[in-house]
Structures are given as structure tokens and as C-alpha cells.
Write a protein that binds this DNA or RNA. Structure first.
Lengths: 214, 214
DNA sequence: AAAACTTTGTTACTTGCGGTAACGAGAGTC
DNA sequence: GACTCTCGTTACCGCAAGTAACAAAGTTTT
């Protein structure tokens, strides 16, 4: 069959690609996001031009890496998000899953957050606002989908769910980032605090000015 | 007096520094965050080593630039944050101020969001979690201060206010970033949606399938 | 079987940037 | 007049991204 021949090549290429990605992963995890193409090639046991043949440029490689990890994280999150429990519980589980992931592997997380580089000259008036990590965008969209699907928001639900999706993801990310750096409390406490925030505790709290003393 | 002589030099150096920063600003605003030191030096009418004498390295220059802009933004935000109106109004005004700022000058905003680079070799086990833009950290801390100062959160208020400060800033940032890219609605609508989220509308909304508890 | 092509890999190069060393010219000081 | 101190230059180093040109293997075509 001709299919086997062609498939053989494709499979071989795919296997190679996966091997390269795994090598790249090791290097990036070891050396951080600044890892050089040379280093990655060396780890994979080959030389630079092959990497470029497979991934085009550094952006391509990093994008492929990011997609892998993002997919993995998304799978974990979806499980927490789609649980049949009550909303608050689901929210807490999702927050905890995310935080556990970044806690377990800060290097991966750190890499995912700024894949955008570029020795690029030119391209002055590119498009604005696309610097942020695609991971966050994907998470935001995913969460938006779930919200719209499961929460009754009346009219404007399309807009609201997306705003909230991105907003909540951003909240989770920023708080997680800060928490990871300072470790001011346990993960459970952080989850509680964030869930409380989403549950309107900021709106419900009283002013301090009328308080004791002063 | 000797003081005048010394002050003369210092003033001259400071003026120079400011000129250089302004030149750098123009270039960064024109060419994006990838602007080269050569380009900045050329814009300032001098050559590279002078930049390095003034700012140490590229990180130093970018940090100085970032501090300038961050200070400016913080001043605007503090005005909205310290208003004597009601809390919801204050929150909305603050959100709107931030969004208006990033809308008015996306280039600046874009630059502020990833000043961290580094051709650094070595330093393998640096510190994790410091990749995020210092702007967000400063905003988060600032907001935390205001929250703790004006909202009664009972015990744990120190922790809660900081978590919320960073969380809310992250929410604002992520939603703003997405909004700036897609422009799915007016600024006012976005502000409303985010304030609604903070006001617990997510918790208050009903489920879409079956009842709560399921 | 020999020629041609594809795949897989190499070495060696170019370009461009961050950063630095070494040197040069004015201006104030002993 | 020599000394030094700041401001400025040119010319370089090192390094990383990306590419061109070439080499050896297997596969297909004639």
C-alpha cells in the first residue's frame, strides 16, 4: 500500500517532532525561558538547522511547547470545572487545581507566561495588546464558555460571560503569581480568599471610617 | 560655596538623564518594547556607552522608564481611589481610569507589561515568579493598602486585603487586555460588568440547568 | 545498475544586539 | 604646564537567531 509508505514518513516525522519537543522541554525547564536554540539542539543530540526545519523559528518551537502544556493544564481544569457539585465548590476546585499546578511546576508556568520574544526588527505597527500569554486568553475563553453554559445571566449573557471569564482568569493568575513569589499563606487560604472575593464579600463588608477610635 | 558646585553637576546629570529618558520614551513608543539601545541612543543624539553609564544596562533604563509611567498612572488611580464617594462608585471610577489610560496609550501599556528580559546566562535557580510586570505588583500593593485602610474585613484583614488587591488588579488587567484587543463593547459596559462581578453577581445568578444543589 | 530526488544531518557563515574597553577632547584645579 | 574628571567617541567581544551550502544515506525512476 502506498498509505503505509507515506504514513511511515509522517509517523517518523511526528515521532521526531515529539522527541525534539521533549528535549526542548527538559532544557526550558532547566534553563528557564531564555534557553538557546543551540542548547535545545544539543540536548536533543542534533544541531540547530534541524530544529528550524521542524519549527520554523524559535517562536514556532515555543508555541508548540506552550500548546502542549496549555492543553495539559486545560484538561485538568476542565475536570474541576465540569464537576457536578455546587458552584462555589466548583469554583474553589478550579482555583485550587490551577494553583496546585503552578505550585507544582513553577518553571513551566513561568515559561508559559511570556513566550513572546522576538529579535524582530520592523513590524512597527504590529497589533497591540497581543503580548499577553496565549495561555491566559485560552483559559479566559474556556471559562467564558463554561459560565455561559451553566450560569443564567439573562440578556447580555454572551458579553458578561466573556468579561467574567477573562476577568476571573486574570484574578486567579495575578493572585497566584504574587502568592507564588511571597508565599504569604497556604493554598487553601488563598483559594478561600479569592472565592470570597468572587462571592461579593467586598461589596458586603462595612466601611472602616465609622469604626472604633479616631 | 562648595554646595553650588556639586549641585550644579548633579543637576546637569539629572537633566541629562531626563532628556535621555524622554528620547527613550519616544523610541519605545514608536518601535515597541523591542527597541534597541542603539536606536534609543541615536534618538537622543548620542551613542550607546553613555546610556550604559547612566542606566547600567538595558534593564536599568527600562526600569526607569517603567517607574515614570507607573508613577503617572498611579497618581491618576489614587485620585479615583481616594474619592469620598461610595464604594461602588469608587471602584467604577478606578476601573474606568485604568481602562481609559490603557485605551489612550496602548503602546505605553504594552511596554509596561513585559520589561523583564535578560540575556543572562547562569543564574539558573534565580527566583521564581518575578517575571510578571512590576507595574501589576505595585498596583496590587497599592490597592491592598487602600482596601485595608477603608474596608472593614475583620481579622485576617492584612491577608485578605492583599489577596484582593492583587486579584482585583489582575482581573482589571486581564479583562482590559482582552477588551483592548477585541473591543467587544464600550468602556462603560466593561466597567459595569466587572463591577457587577466584584459585587457578587456571579454568586447570585441562578443555575441554568436544574436547581442549585443537584 | 545508474541517475535523480528526498530525507537527515552537518559545518560554517551572516546579522544584529547587549555590553565593554580603550581612547580623545575640554574644563576646572594645583 | 601637568593632572584629573566628565562627556563623548570608535571599535571591538561574545552570543544568539537564523541561513546557506554541502554531504551522505535511502528511494524512486529510467
Amino acid at each position: 500500500m502506498e498509505t503505509t509508505g507515506r504514513t511511515d514518513q509522517e509517523r517518523s516525522a511526528d515521532r521526531r517532532r515529539r522527541e525534539l519537543l521533549e528535549a526542548a522541554d527538559r532544557v526550558v525547564l532547566r534553563d528557564g525561558p531564555g534557553a538557546s536554540m543551540n542548547a535545545i539542539a544539543a540536548e536533543a543530540g542534533i544541531t540547530k538547522p534541524i530544529l528550524y526545519r521542524h519549527f520554523g523559528d524559535k517562536g514556532g518551537l515555543y508555541k508548540a511547547l506552550a500548546v502542549r502544556h496549555t492543553d495539559a493544564l486545560l484538561d485538568a481544569l476542565r475536570a474541576a470545572l465540569d464537576a457536578p457539585s455546587e458552584r462555589r465548590e466548583r469554583v474553589e476546585a478550579t482555583l485550587d487545581t490551577y494553583l496546585a499546578a503552578i505550585e507544582a511546576n513553577p518553571q513551566v508556568y513561568r515559561f508559559l507566561m511570556h513566550p513572546s520574544e522576538g529579535t524582530s526588527q520592523g513590524e512597527g505597527a504590529f497589533d497591540v495588546g497581543l503580548h499577553s500569554a496565549p495561555l491566559l486568553r485560552r483559559l479566559g475563553e474556556e471559562l467564558a464558555k463554561v459560565i455561559e453554559e451553566r450560569v443564567d445571566l439573562g440578556p447580555e449573557s454572551a458579553l458578561l460571560s466573556r468579561v467574567w471569564g477573562h476577568g476571573i482568569v486574570g484574578m486567579m493568575h495575578a493572585a497566584g503569581d504574587w502568592w507564588l513569589g511571597e508565599r504569604p499563606c497556604s493554598r487553601a487560604q488563598l483559594v478561600q480568599s479569592l472565592a470570597d472575593l468572587l462571592w461579593g464579600r467586598l461589596a458586603a463588608a462595612g466601611d472602616r471610617v465609622g469604626g472604633p477610635g479616631f
